[in-house]
Design a protein around this nucleic acid. Structure first.
Lengths: 231, 231
DNA sequence: CGATAAACGGAGAGACCACTCCACTTGAGG
DNA sequence: CCTCAAGTGGAGTGGTCTCTCCGTTTATCG
């Protein structure tokens, strides 16, 4: 069972190097374009051939897992930090804000975080650890009278999923929207007036039009452009 | 400019019939599986050939537009109804609840609603009409002192996008989650204590695992099953 | 009922993607 | 420096999807 470590150290120097390049490339592309980027794009950005990518990461899930376990453990440590905060509400609030910010900044992370990976055991384990921590955090805030009694742990999942639904033409607009949404939801969770009446971050000023919506849906826009418009 | 109507009535009887079948099929499939269903699936469900589909709706956008303009006008009429309600807050609340419910029940509608269609002029017009109505509704609720002063019209778009991010293994779970999320957000918008302290619908009880997440992302699960697992 | 244009179905061209195979290259121990 | 297994790149295979072309069918009107 020392395979996990030996497999990596037994790798030849160039192979280990390429593996890093692949992970970097995947990290970038997942963040920018989500988990469904073509495998060839990852290989190309890493400057290696397809075979190298597939030899190192036999399935897409393997690559995704490898890329995001780091960030997932970061995520969990954010929770631990928050549990150390003497102010239960501030701890709770910061975690929600931070996790949502992470998800907004990295498109792929959201998708990975909200998914189940049948193969990725340690991924799932970290996921559960994060979940337990979050529940503990909520519990503490509730006992401190800062979090409403009708809050349910699953509401956190709701917040995460809601946050993942946000879309905007620019990354910046997306972050503004996320901050606002999170503040709105936190206000709804707050039990004390001072927390509930904290000022809101600026509105997102996104309209129904000028949304990327189907811009991220190739087929629809492609229908008009690919054939008739391209040439 | 009488083209729009004449084009339809000039259609041969069988063609008009097939056109209806295509719209019905598309409506069903868009609702179930989103806007990105294969065109062939639409044709097959309608019981017609590909050519018929493409002759009637040259682009996917044309089909989408045709399918959803009805529902969009329904949407707008919900707003008009709400404006007729003497209780400004109830009107506001009902609209948000209804629109979100519509979106949760129809996957495609959400995608269409949150998108811009460069070609679909009447679609855009209805979108703007709905937007104006919603703003008026919010204005009235604000003047009545039922809606917080820091509410901004764009927050409605936030609610819609947030709602669209919800995912769950079953349609029912999705609706429960949506109801809860909407209630949470409405609570955050409410200016009066009685509105803010209304009881919440039941929690969604979705965990981080057991989410469809990448289930709707073919590549990831397919990677493990298609080749090695299928046979 | 027969002529004819409108409408039809489905095969197929072209693009894209996941994943594999194999002839060539290169790092590392002797 | 030589050997050779480990490592590599990229062409190739099979599958899916969009959109078109064309030979056949059929509604409609005189």
């Amino acid at each position: 069972m020392a395979d996990a470590s030996s497999q990596l150290t037994d790798l030849r120097a160039d192979a280990r190097h390429n593996r890093e390049r692949l992970l970097d490339a995947a990290r970038e592309l997942f963040a920018e374009r989500g988990l469904d980027v073509p495998m060839a794009a990852v290989a190309r950005r890493a400057g290696v051939g397809m075979a190298t990518l597939y030899r190192r990461f036999p399935t897409r899930a393997a690559l995704v897992t490898e890329v995001f376990t780091d960030q997932l453990t970061d995520c969990a440590s954010v929770v631990d930090e928050a549990l150390a905060d003497p102010d239960a509400w501030r701890g709770f609030r910061t975690v929600v804000e931070n996790v949502c910010a992470m998800h907004t900044q990295d498109r792929g992370f959201t998708m990975a975080f909200l998914s189940e990976f049948p193969d990725a055991y340690d991924f799932t384990r970290e996921q559960e650890r994060a979940e337990r921590g979050l529940t503990a955090l909520a519990d503490r805030a509730q006992r401190a009278g800062a979090l409403r009694a009708d809050f349910h742990p699953s509401d956190l999942v709701l917040v995460l999923m809601a946050n993942s639904g946000l879309a905007a033409p620019s990354q910046e607009a997306k972050e503004i929207a996320s901050r606002r949404l999170v503040a709105l939801l936190l206000r709804s969770f707050a039990a004390t007036p001072e927390a509930a009446d904290a000022p809101l971050p600026p509105p997102a000023s996104v309209a129904l039009h000028d949304l990327p919506g189907l811009g991220s849906m190739p087929e629809l826009t492609a229908a008009g452009t690919t054939v008739s418009g391209r040439r």
